[in-house]
Amino acid sequence: MMGIMADTHDNLDAIRDAVQLFNREKVELVIHAGDLIAPFTAREFQKLNAKFVAVFGNNDGEREGLRTAYRDLCILKDFREVSVSSRKFAVIHGMEEAIVNSLAKSGLYDVVVRGHSHKPEIINGETLVVNPGEVCGYVSGDRTVVIMDPDTLSHELIYL
Rank of each mutant, 00 (worst) to 15 (best):
V130C: 13
A38D: 01
Q20W: 09
G107Y: 08
L29V: 14
E81G: 06
G107P: 10
Y70K: 02
H93M: 00
D142W: 04
P120I: 00
F52P: 13
L36C: 02
Y70L: 05
S86W: 00
Q20Y: 14
V19T: 08
V130H: 09
L128Y: 04
M148A: 15
D17E: 11
S140Q: 02
R143S: 03
N49L: 11
D142R: 13
P150Y: 09
E64L: 02
V82T: 12
I147H: 11
E96C: 05
R143T: 03
S117A: 03
E121Q: 10
A33Q: 14
N58W: 09
S106R: 12
S106Y: 12
D151A: 10
V27G: 05
G107I: 08
C136P: 00
I147R: 15
E121Y: 01
D142H: 10
I31N: 08
I99Y: 06
D72V: 11
R63V: 02
N101E: 08
E62G: 12
R87L: 07
V139K: 07
A38Y: 06
F89W: 11
G34Y: 06
E44W: 09
S83E: 08
L48Q: 11
K105D: 14
I31A: 04
F22L: 11
N124V: 05
T68F: 07
K47G: 01
I75H: 00
R24E: 15
I122V: 15
V84P: 06
S117I: 00
N23Q: 13
R80T: 09
F79T: 09
F22Q: 06
L66M: 07
A90W: 01
F45L: 09
S86M: 09
V111W: 07
Y138G: 13
K26L: 02
A42D: 08
V82K: 02
G61M: 11
N59S: 05
D110E: 12
I75N: 04
I147K: 11
E96Y: 15
E62A: 11
D60P: 02
R24F: 05
L48Y: 01
V145N: 03
F89E: 07
H118I: 04
G141D: 11
V19W: 04
K47I: 03
L108K: 15
S83G: 00
I75P: 00
I75W: 00
E44F: 12
G94M: 13
G34I: 04
L29R: 06
E126N: 15
H116S: 12
D142S: 14
D142T: 06
N23T: 09
V53P: 08
D151K: 15
L29M: 04
N58E: 08
S140M: 10
L48H: 13
A50L: 00
H32W: 02
A69S: 01
A42C: 10
G137Q: 00
E97N: 15
G107C: 14
V139E: 02
R43W: 06
P120F: 03
V130S: 06
D17V: 11
P132T: 05
T68I: 08
V100W: 01
E134G: 04
I123K: 07
G115W: 01
A50G: 00
H116L: 03
S83M: 02
G137P: 01
S102N: 15
A33K: 09
V113F: 12
F52G: 14
G65P: 11
D17Y: 14
D35I: 01
L21N: 06
E97T: 08
P132H: 05
V129P: 08
V129G: 09
P120V: 03
E134K: 02
A69F: 04
A54P: 03
T127D: 10
